[in-house]
């Protein structure tokens, strides 16, 4: 357990270094965010006042120290653009991001597993070949291509799904079910697009590891002992396959949590990715740092959870992982 804490501490240290690096980088980069809020007509005193309200008139080291002091008490500063605390702005987009990325992730993982199972059941037959080449094709389709294509097909031509946003503009629906339906209706295409980007990866992985485990001696032994196929798969092959994919899934889910940027841009959704990029483009320094911190924490968290699950499945890993 001590080693486990060490591992977590290393991650947090990396995060701390990243955030510090970013904090300095945005401030030494050319350009000044306060310019956007100033007009040449203002008096010099007022200009000074605006600059000092952004705390950009002090040397970077002082800014950094005050940032650290505030950050440890949970205060990440005030967003330049939204004029509200950064933590408040970020916590507004988090529920959407969680729902969006979790649903896409579930489809990727479970869909990949089931499709691989299905393909493996028809080993080297037409369906298997079709699914394999389909996954190679899908793997090469970037999300902005598939997103725009699906919008064209389903929104422009068939008019089945809305092309952007999370809810109908101006709808004052009070009924919970209608509201939920509206959300799901809007999110269907984005979730499909996001799921399609990862589905081939999981499919290919599971397909290959089924193949590999199928030939292993322990499978042969189990089969020779008359253990049912169902039991072989559920109790032996799938748990053995899960091991390294979960490590990948941890990283993958963490990155999804920190924003499925392209998909959010294509469908103009209010997620972490677009928030971060808009902060970057608008030079909203506190929000940039806040988004990085949140994203980093989420990545560390998902990685830790993934490691815990792996250790639960395979006890041998406890030693290996910690070294």
């Amino acid at each position: 357990m001590l080693l486990f804490i060490k591992r977590a501490a290393t991650s947090v240290l990396i995060l701390f270094l990243t955030v510090s690096f970013l904090f300095v980088l945005v401030r030494i980069a050319p350009g000044d965010p306060s310019q956007k809020y100033l007009s040449p007509n203002l008096s010099p005193q007022l200009i000074e006042k605006v600059k000092s309200s952004f705390q950009l008139d002090k040397p970077i080291s002082k800014q950094y120290i005050s940032f650290l002091e505030n950050a440890f008490s949970g205060d990440l500063g005030i967003s330049y653009k939204y004029h509200r605390p950064v933590s408040e702005v970020i916590s507004e987009v988090l529920p959407f991001t969680f729902f969006f990325s979790l649903s896409a992730f579930t489809i990727q993982f479970v869909g990949g597993l089931l499709l691989a199972f299905w393909a493996f059941h028809h080993h080297k037959k037409l369906l298997d070949k079709f699914l394999s080449s389909g996954s190679i094709f899908l793997y090469a389709v970037p999300s902005f291509v598939s997103g725009v294509f699906l919008i064209y097909l389903f929104s422009v031509q068939l008019k089945l799904f809305p092309s952007s946003g999370v809810k109908t503009v101006g709808s004052l629906e009070e009924n919970f079910f209608l509201l939920a339906f509206d959300y799901l209706h809007h999110l269907f295409l984005p979730v499909v697009v996001l799921a399609l980007t990862g589905l081939p990866v999981y499919f290919k992985y599971f397909r290959e590891s089924f193949e590999e485990n199928q030939q292993k001696l322990y499978t042969v032994y189990l089969r020779a002992n008359g253990v049912s196929e169902k039991r072989i798969y559920l109790r032996h092959i799938i748990p053995n396959s899960l091991n390294s994919i979960i490590a990948y899934a941890g990283v993958d889910l963490g990155i999804l949590f920190s924003g499925a940027l392209i998909t959010e841009v294509v469908f103009s959704l209010p997620g972490m990715g677009r928030l971060a990029v808009n902060a970057i483009l608008g030079r909203d320094y506190p929000l940039i740092v806040g988004c990085t911190l949140t994203a980093g924490l989420l990545v560390i968290l998902t990685n830790l959870i993934a490691d815990l699950i792996r250790m639960k499945i395979d006890k041998r890993l406890v030693k290996g992982l910690l070294n």
Binding site: V26, V251, G259, L261, I280, L281, C291, G296, V299, N303
Partner: peptide
């Protein structure tokens, strides 16, 4: 571990 795309966008934008 960190989403590199944001780093890329940050450098390009700044």
């Amino acid at each position: 571990t960190f989403p590199v795309i944001f780093f890329i966008i940050l450098v390009l934008a700044f």
